[in-house]
Design a binder for these strands. Structure first.
Lengths: 239, 239
DNA sequence: AGAGAATACAGTGTATACACTTAAATGTAA
DNA sequence: TTACATTTAAGTGTATACACTGTATTCTCT
């Protein structure tokens, strides 16, 4: 995704788009929720102008959708769309495997190993956060900025939905086991194995998510897992 | 890409982002060119506010880059980036082949065949326009909106650079021949062949572009192919 | 009470105005 | 002429203000 330094000149500001993007990714702002410009502006202590700019940027990223009435909402994905995005993620991520193996230094591998080890016994929310970082770090190693960018975008879009799966199923432990395998494949410089693992990683998670969606009434509802703190922010921003 | 109807409420406006996106894609606004808000606003007959929103949206799409000084410019890609994007395009496009074959109706195929036939003897600029439409149409048929979106984004980003190759090399006739083959593969419902052709299509074009870049001093300079009319618009918008 | 008209409200879109920053142009002294 | 200080201009960032639109609410009349 974009560099975190939003602008040199006005750079000391907390970067409105960044805050909204993270809030959406972490599920604090649930899919479908209206994003009222004035509320966000007040919450952030700025006028509506920079808020509008952030919303337009996020809309271009696909995280926000402007309705016909002009109102912005957190993009809500249909199950088929989530499915498609998981497929896209699998394709992009597995394609980066050779580059990752090629450019990763032993120090990189160690850092990743440590990161994954630190995730072993985290609860769902904290684990999801680290999980996102782990994959982003992997992408960064490939030194393919546009692949990483596209993949990061997709990861961000599906994250609210992934979190449902992580919190509900035994998904977390399986994914975590695969993370360890990925580190070993990386250490062994086995790019085919890494690609295979990344493909499998996505496909399994995708299937788990869809299975969960199928067996519950309200198919995919990240709102349900929003934390209490998250809810209060969401309520503050909501209509 | 986003739906063309930018907004219901203020929808009758010519959609500023749209105009800028097209201008960049077609090379009227050359990579690296400064995008002065006030100039664009005046040229479009609006204030800077909606212009800024458009620029932020385009920045999120990667077509525009905000410098450290806050100024926006048309994104200029390094040769490695163009190379990477061609690879990305090949990957995405070829992956859509089975879905395209699956969902295309005979009427769709006929329409595409006609479109391609109409391109046979066009000069470079007009051909490039139709070429873009042809591929977009192909993506649309796959009924995979997020794949199509990502691919369209990439196509747009590399378009100014592709045009250089089309105008300088015999690229156009080779690409056109491949287009005809794609139609036949599609008509024969041979998705493997279609995927192969799409891969080859990108890889060959990519190599041709890089070869051209290597043998010229100024590696990739789309400015050189901007038409006279384009230049005047660019100059008007430029600093 | 219920249907329809009039009003108030909530929200967006955007033009204007002003503060701030950087870089260029100008002027001045050695 | 060159180096340095000063002013000017060009550009951006954003707060405020106002116009517009749809929706809910209230009021009125039957």
């Amino acid at each position: 995704m974009e560099a975190s330094i939003e602008s040199g000149r006005a750079g000391q500001r907390p970067a409105i788009a960044e805050v909204l993007r993270e809030s959406i990714r972490q599920g604090m702002l649930a899919p479908g929720q209206p994003l009222i410009q004035a509320s966000i502006a007040e919450a952030m202590g700025v006028s509506r102008i920079p808020v509008r700019e952030a919303l337009h940027a996020l809309a271009a990223e696909g995280l926000v959708t402007f309705g016909e009435d002009g109102g912005a909402r957190v993009t809500a994905l249909a199950p088929e769309e989530v499915d498609e995005l998981w497929t896209l993620r699998a394709l992009l991520e597995s394609h980066m495997a050779p580059a990752i193996v090629r450019t990763a230094t032993p120090a990189d591998v160690d850092a990743l190993r440590e990161l994954v080890a630190a995730m072993d016994d985290l609860e769902a929310t904290a684990w999801s956060d680290r999980n996102f970082s782990f994959h982003q770090e992997l992408h960064r190693l490939a030194e393919m900025p546009h692949f990483a960018d596209a993949t990061g975008r997709v990861l961000t879009m599906i994250e609210p939905y992934s979190r449902v799966a992580v919190s509900v199923l035994q998904e977390q432990s399986e994914a975590q086991a695969e993370h360890h395998q990925m580190i070993e494949a990386l250490a062994a410089e086995d790019s085919d194995e890494l690609a295979r693992l990344l493909l499998h990683h996505s496909h399994r998670a995708r299937k788990a998510l869809l299975a969960y969606a199928a067996e519950t009434a309200k198919p995919v509802d990240p709102q349900a897992v929003a934390t209490a703190a998250a809810r209060s922010l969401a309520d503050h921003l909501g209509a």
